[in-house]
Computed example of a mutant assay.
Amino acid sequence: MKSLYENLPVDFLARFYYEIRKNIKKRVLSEAMYFELDLIEKAAKNKGITIEELHKYLFVH
């Protein structure tokens, strides 16, 4: 079964990933959100994009 993230464009994936990580570090979101990060990482991988590329995509585009 595909996650919601599978259907999002790469720029949205990058933004979601960045915001979730930022809010976990600020303790605005719980550590349970790491599950969401995993789903985003899997969706990126299915699109042929690594997490490092996702970070670059966010700051280049």
Rank of each mutant, 00 (worst) to 15 (best):
K22Q: 13
K22W: 11
N23R: 11
N23Y: 06
I24V: 08
I24T: 02
I24C: 04
K26C: 06
K26N: 11
K26L: 10
K26G: 00
R27D: 01
V28F: 12
V28E: 03
V28H: 04
V28S: 09
V28P: 01
L29A: 00
L29K: 05
L29V: 08
L29P: 06
S30L: 03
S30N: 08
S30K: 07
S30C: 00
E31A: 08
E31Y: 12
A32F: 10
A32P: 00
A32S: 11
A32T: 09
A32W: 05
M33Q: 11
Y34E: 14
Y34C: 00
Y34V: 09
F35K: 09
E36M: 02
E36Y: 09
E36T: 10
L37K: 06
D38G: 15
D38P: 01
D38H: 12
L39N: 12
L39M: 11
I40G: 04
E41D: 14
E41I: 00
E41M: 04
K42A: 11
K42I: 06
A43T: 08
A43V: 07
A43P: 09
A44E: 04
A44N: 06
K45V: 02
K45Y: 02
N46Y: 03
K47F: 10
K47Y: 10
G48Q: 10
G48A: 13
G48P: 07
I49A: 02
I49E: 01
I49N: 01
I49L: 15
T50S: 13
I51H: 02
I51P: 06
I51T: 15
I51Q: 07
E52Q: 14
E52V: 06
E53G: 12
E53W: 08
L54Y: 05
L54T: 03
L54I: 04
H55Y: 15
H55W: 15
H55F: 15
H55V: 15
K56D: 13
K56H: 15
Y57V: 15
Y57G: 13
L58V: 13
L58S: 14
